[in-house]
Design a protein around this nucleic acid. Structure first.
Lengths: 152, 152
DNA sequence: CACTATTGTTATATGAAATAACAAACGCGT
DNA sequence: ACGCGTTTGTTATTTCATATAACAATAGTG
């Protein structure tokens, strides 16, 4: 599963003038490219982009209910169940009954989860650094993030 | 199917510090948001982002073979067949036997296809203008496109 | 001419995301 | 305390995009 072939589209041959000015198109291309690299780098950790974001969010907000985390990530509750069960099964997170509501489950990182996230964080830092380098520097990265936010 | 609810994720409530600095995450968010708007605006034309790009590419490169267009768009040949058949069925494109190769099919826009694309182009121009406005101006748009390319 | 590669195609598998229905628990109003 | 709509987490199902496999017809090459 490592080092997938990266199907580089669009690159040559055809006149792509008309698509070149389209924000949405270029956005999608860049996003796909970045995700491809993410998947390649995180292959050994068996961690997908959305899952990494999920762990980060739980680490930042321990004890929040499952649905709160799902909402913050923009994931439907039903689809979030599988993610939670997966990480629970891997021993990386813990579902504890929430205080004051016997329906709700509060999410926490286990010690193993914290350790795992630390490793993931290192891997991601390297990836992020390579992207900053591609962008030309920290300031360019900040400019990009600012512009992206205005589109969201 | 019109005016879908736009599930705005992430917005409030939780501490999202850790995800805020991640290029890939913000990229995905922006891309989703832009595509949502695209889908809403193009709802009446029954045209998806990839389909619009496809028509533009055929308009720019009339007579190219099916697989060339598919490659340029980064779409697998097998999956492109359905798209082509769809537009052929709508009378917007035409598949003609390619000169010199009886296997290949050369793609052209029909007159109806050109008219349709012209309408789509108008709709898209308005969408693009609104995004440029959100970004703060033409120059910001160009900066964004430049940065996105460096990531691709 | 024999063999391999390419073109378009069908059928199928995989994976993400949306929807529907549900039981358990909550909380509100009376 | 009761009844009733709502929320939480869950399962099952659907839809949709994309990936893979196999195939017939044609092309090109040694």
């Amino acid at each position: 599963m490592s080092t997938d072939k990266l199907s580089r589209p669009g690159s040559h041959l055809l006149n792509a003038e008309s698509t070149s000015g389209i924000v949405g198109y270029r956005l999608r291309r860049a996003q796909l490219s970045v995700f491809q690299r993410f998947l390649a780098v995180f292959d050994e950790l068996d961690l997908r982009p959305a899952e990494y974001a999920m762990l980060l969010l739980i680490a930042d907000n321990p004890g929040r209910r499952q649905n709160e985390i799902a909402d913050a990530l923009g994931i439907k509750h039903a689809n979030f169940v599988g993610l939670v069960q997966g990480f629970d099964g891997r021993g990386l997170i813990e579902r504890r009954p929430a205080a004051g509501d016997r329906r709700a489950k509060a999410l926490y990182l286990t010690p193993e989860g914290s350790a795992f996230l630390a490793r993931a964080h290192e891997v991601h830092d390297r990836l992020e650094a390579s992207m900053v380098a591609a962008l030309g520097g920290e300031s360019e990265r900040d400019i990009l993030l600012g512009l992206l936010d205005r589109l969201s």
